Amino acid sequence: MLVMRYALCLVVLMLAACNTPSPGFRGIDPVRVKVGPSVFDVRVQDGQAEALRINSDYAPRMGPIGPRATLAIEQVSGCTVRRLGGDQAMIRASLNCGKVDAPPPVPPSYSCAVFTRPADGADGARIEEIVCDPV
């Protein structure tokens, strides 16, 4: 019975941490952005950004998620992503905002679509283009 209680507590703690920002971003309201099949809660502060992927999209590695997270962070912050790190669930970015003191205000969310078209060159080569509009 004691083991069952510990297991239940562990499950509750794991579920509570699913959409929790890191300590440096606590207290900042997230902006929800959808890029293709991925949904991110993006928080920006002092030249840094954090994007939490909140959908259940299968992503065993950062490869397909990185470009989507970069786009989401750039849309919310109004800055260029200099460096991206983290994993496929929590992405951290250093921003290059130029001489702008504060990021511009943004709409609460974006609707994005991924368009794929064939590319010249190798067989099966494709080009993906992500187009986003404020909602």
Results as ranks from 00 to 15, higher is better:
Leu2His: 13
Leu2Ala: 14
Val3Gly: 03
Met4Asn: 11
Met4Lys: 09
Met4Val: 13
Arg5Asn: 05
Tyr6Lys: 10
Leu8Ala: 14
Leu8Asn: 10
Cys9Leu: 15
Leu10Pro: 07
Val11Gln: 04
Val11Pro: 04
Val12His: 04
Val12Trp: 04
Leu13Asp: 05
Met14Glu: 10
Ala17Gln: 11
Cys18His: 08
Arg26Asn: 07
Arg26Ile: 05
Arg26His: 08
Arg26Gln: 13
Arg26Tyr: 02
Gly27Val: 00
Ile28His: 05
Pro30Lys: 02
Pro30Val: 01
Pro30Tyr: 01
Arg32Thr: 14
Val33Trp: 02
Val33Gln: 00
Val33Ile: 13
Val35Ala: 06
Gly36Pro: 12
Pro37Tyr: 11
Pro37Ile: 15
Ser38Trp: 06
Asp41Ile: 00
Asp41Met: 12
Val42Ala: 02
Val44Ile: 05
Val44Phe: 01
Val44Arg: 00
Val44Asn: 00
Gln45Gly: 05
Gln45Asp: 04
Asp46Pro: 02
Asp46Ile: 03
Gln48Phe: 06
Ala49Phe: 03
Glu50Tyr: 03
Glu50Val: 01
Ala51Cys: 03
Arg53Tyr: 03
Ile54Ser: 02
Asn55Trp: 01
Asp57Gly: 05
Asp57Arg: 04
Asp57Cys: 10
Tyr58Cys: 04
Tyr58Arg: 07
Ala59Gly: 01
Pro60Trp: 10
Pro60Gly: 04
Arg61Pro: 08
Arg61Trp: 09
Met62Arg: 12
Met62Thr: 03
Pro64Asn: 08
Ile65Glu: 06
Gly66Met: 15
Pro67Ala: 09
Ala69Pro: 10
Leu71Asn: 12
Leu71Tyr: 11
Leu71Glu: 15
Leu71Ile: 15
Ala72Gln: 10
Ile73Leu: 01
Gln75Phe: 06
Ser77Asp: 00
Gly78Trp: 01
Cys79Ala: 07
Cys79Thr: 10
Thr80Gln: 14
Thr80Tyr: 10
Arg82Gly: 13
Leu84Ala: 02
Gly85His: 12
Gly86Arg: 10
Asp87Ala: 07
Gln88His: 13
Gln88Thr: 15
Ala89His: 14
Arg92Thr: 08
Arg92Ile: 11
Ala93Lys: 01
Ser94Asn: 13
Leu95Asn: 00
Lys99Tyr: 08
Val100Gln: 10
Val100Glu: 07
Asp101Lys: 08
Pro103Asn: 00
Pro104Leu: 00
Pro104Gln: 01
Pro105Phe: 02
Pro105Ala: 06
Pro105Glu: 09
Val106Tyr: 02
Val106Met: 05
Pro107Thr: 11
Pro108Cys: 07
Tyr110Trp: 15
Ser111Tyr: 10
Cys112Gln: 06
Ala113Pro: 09
Ala113Glu: 11
Thr116Lys: 15
Thr116Ala: 13
Arg117Ile: 00
Pro118Tyr: 07
Pro118Cys: 08
Ala119Lys: 12
Ala122Gln: 13
Arg126His: 13
Ile127Ser: 09
Ile127Gln: 08
Ile130Met: 14
Ile130Gly: 10
Ile130Ser: 14
Val131Ala: 11
Val131Pro: 05
Pro134Tyr: 04
Pro134Asn: 03
